[in-house]
Nucleic acid binder design. Structure first.
Lengths: 209, 209, 209, 209
DNA sequence: GATGAATGAGAATTCATTCAT
DNA sequence: TATGAATGAATTCTCATTCAT
């Protein structure tokens, strides 16, 4: 199922005593899985890949997780736990539509930038050098952003056009721009946020600037 | 990568009954692969899945394609062959920015609507976003649209903002909205086109209309 | 079963009318098989390989032979038919042991030289650049030489030592020297014959010359 | 070709019960492979055959070797490790040509006798010569003997005839006679050595003795 | 006969998962 | 709890052979 790419992911060799305090093995596995999912995507990643990136024995994996899917969910949940407070805060402070949109995009961009640095990207058989959509973090970002938008539309902060289309459009912009943003170094969070916000507040940005 | 470079460009039109069956089988495999990729995604799909969806014997697959990747490329190439002229025409005729954007979106939406009918849908093991990004047709749509946008920006029809961000934003909108659009029946090509165009021409639709 | 080597064997494209007089297809197949066996050896060669080297359709093969083994036997029989008269003649003329040995070696060397020119040799997984032992011609050569020796021993032309050991030794010398001989161009039939004969007539050659 | 170049040269001696089993399994596979190669020849042998002769699960094979070829090499390397010192010793001690030749043959015969016990024998689909040339041990024996002869010729112990022909002749004799020798029980090492030596020291044995 | 696509048994290889240590 | 070898089902791919044209 995985003939496609070399697996450059090196297991971080545990050396200090501190790392030997294992029951952080769970953490080790989660970290490895994050890297593997980011590089290969959920579907193409194998449990083997994760174990390999872990440096642990294969059996150990099953002391913590029953399957690849369970790791995926654990990462997703952890990520969700992390973003949610931030989003809630942004949501609270937003008074105007522009405010709301800006902070929604910013939160999404910041979250991804934090969580997805050091990503490899290569190795896809179909030569898609694209950000992986099936990564736990992205799924979380998606979900939260979508909820965010829907809530705002419901609350009247965003105008009540076709809500589904609006959510789709915003998510699409967020996702695709995130990828473009990540190619710039350092990740251009401010620029991306401004651009995206302006699209939704007034059409093509330069028709204003 | 193309060992048969010296062959006649036009494949000889199938005339005998045998050749017709052969062409049909190739099409059978391509169709099956389209369905399987759409349902499972490229990475999760197995050659077996494709063969199974085909009704043919396993060996027959290898009479036509060397691997899963080769089918993918064949589908992508066929799709590209189909959209490219349409996009070029839209690009040529567009005189204003609005024109350009509207027809780019419309072409993309129409193309996807045509190509994605008969899609299966469910069956995902984890709660992954249901939209497959790694489907050959989508890749083609992406590439072509991006080129389109960049050309238009270069020609001055579109204002010179950050072209990469603009391309990303449009692609994101197109991609995500297409998904939403496909859930409505019949596919709401007109509505989706209008909505997307208005976003890029004037910000949130209802803030104007 | 054959992942190992590229198959450089080109099907000789039939072009002239004369070659189209097919029922020499049998000959075509035999020739192709000879080449394939020489390059890959009997065990590693596949029917596919032979068909490929033939330029014919796969089904055609089965109009002439039931299997790889049948082709092998056909080649072997044809070869045997060809050497036997020569060997008989040499056998008849030989009056002394030296005569006999010399002509036995010479006949063997000549036969192989004639039949095995243009051999490729490469491509073995275990990097054995050795003459193939499991080639129909070699089998024939073996068999005939062995019979020859045994007959001569029986007739008293050769001294009655351990006949089995003698046969083995002569065959070994013949076979291994044949390989060495074939590496020289043109094949050094005279030298090889002289050398081999002298070994058996007086020990290490230079202890005489 | 050796990605693990940095590991300690001495593999840690198996101490735990697990490691012992592992070493045993490796040995099991090697032994099975030896038997299978001897019976079927390298080319005709399948990984499946080896696994089958092993009693292990199919996957287990791949815990030890990547392919049929790798097993072959492992056997060959092990065999080479075993003969080389013996041949070197024989080479060193030899003072006369007769000495040299006798001990070269003896070493080779002894080696083969030791290594080829437990061979299965029959089962060949076609009337191929029963001696497998493509068995790892035979390849090693060949290589080592050839080197041996060449060195001796260079040192002047053997007369300076055509060294390549001499090597070929000796190897042929050794190889073919070994086969004959093995059919006698117990393997007639002394007789074979004496016969072979006498051939090279004085021509056909009985013309002298 | 000649053709060459279809067939499906079988070979190579990978992988999630178990379990004795 | 950690280990990592063993397992065997699942997968990819090859090949001899058949058969409609």
């Amino acid at each position: 199922m995985n003939p496609e790419a070399g697996r450059p992911l090196k297991p971080p060799r545990p050396s200090t005593k501190r790392e030997i305090t294992k029951t952080q093995n769970r953490g080790l596995i989660l970290d490895a899985a994050r890297r593997v999912f980011a590089e290969l995507g959920y579907a193409a990643a194998t449990v083997r890949d994760i174990i390999g990136a872990t440096g642990l024995a294969s059996g150990t994996f099953y002391n913590y997780f029953k399957s690849k899917e369970e790791v995926f969910q654990a990462i997703r949940d952890a990520a969700a736990l992390e973003v949610r407070p931030q989003l809630r805060e942004a949501r609270m402070k937003a008074e105007t539509g522009e405010d709301f949109i800006a902070s929604a995009f910013r939160t999404f961009f910041e979250f991804l930038a934090r969580v997805r640095t050091g990503e490899a990207g290569g190795g896809n058989p179909s030569a898609l050098p694209r950000m992986r959509i099936d990564t736990p973090e992205v799924v979380v970002g998606f979900t939260e952003l979508r909820e965010d938008i829907e809530a705002a539309t419901a609350r009247g902060i965003l105008p009540a056009t076709d809500a589904a289309y609006l959510a789709a459009a915003m998510i699409g912009v967020a996702f695709e721009m995130a990828e473009e943003m990540m190619t710039r170094s350092p990740p251009d969070i401010d620029g991306a946020t401004a651009f995206a916000t302006r699209v939704f507040m007034g059409g093509l940005p330069s028709s204003r600037a």
